[in-house]
């Protein structure tokens, strides 16, 4: 009896944490200033969904859910690979600037270039 209580409590905590994670990641998908940001967030959503499925498998006792989680991981990986190819072929769109806190390009390049030269 105690064992079941512990597991159902842990399931509840894990579900709560993953709900929070899901909403945070979804916010990044909506907001994410650039396409790669959204891709990374979508990849993370797949990982969260796998976690959800694992918890549901424990709660309901249907172990077949584990196979579904593995299949979802496979599909998510292929989707990320396809997205990466898409980013490569599309290139950066003129409207998209890089990171939101980006300094002017010339300034940054000079700084990083100088640093790298010193090291070599």
């Amino acid at each position: 009896m105690a064992a079941e209580t512990i597991i159902s409590g842990a399931c509840a905590i894990a579900l709560f944490l993953m709900c929070a994670a899901f909403f945070l990641t979804a916010w990044r998908v909506i907001k994410g200033p650039t396409l790669p940001d959204r891709i990374v967030a979508l990849d993370m959503l797949t990982a969260i969904a796998i976690g959800f499925i694992a918890v549901v498998a424990i709660r309901t006792g249907f172990n077949l859910y584990i196979d579904i989680a593995i299949a979802l991981g496979l599909v998510g990986f292929l989707a990320t690979v396809a997205f990466a190819r898409f980013v490569l072929s599309r290139g950066m769109q003129p409207g998209e600037e890089g990171a939101p806190d980006e300094a002017p390009a010339g300034n940054r390049t000079r700084r990083s270039g100088g640093h790298a030269r010193r090291l070599h």
Partner: peptide
């Protein structure tokens, strides 16, 4: 997957943070 996305993003010209 992370390597592919990072490589594609860098090749497409997305900048690193300040």
């Amino acid at each position: 997957a992370a390597h592919l996305v990072a490589k594609a993003a860098h090749a497409a010209g997305y900048r690193l943070t300040r």
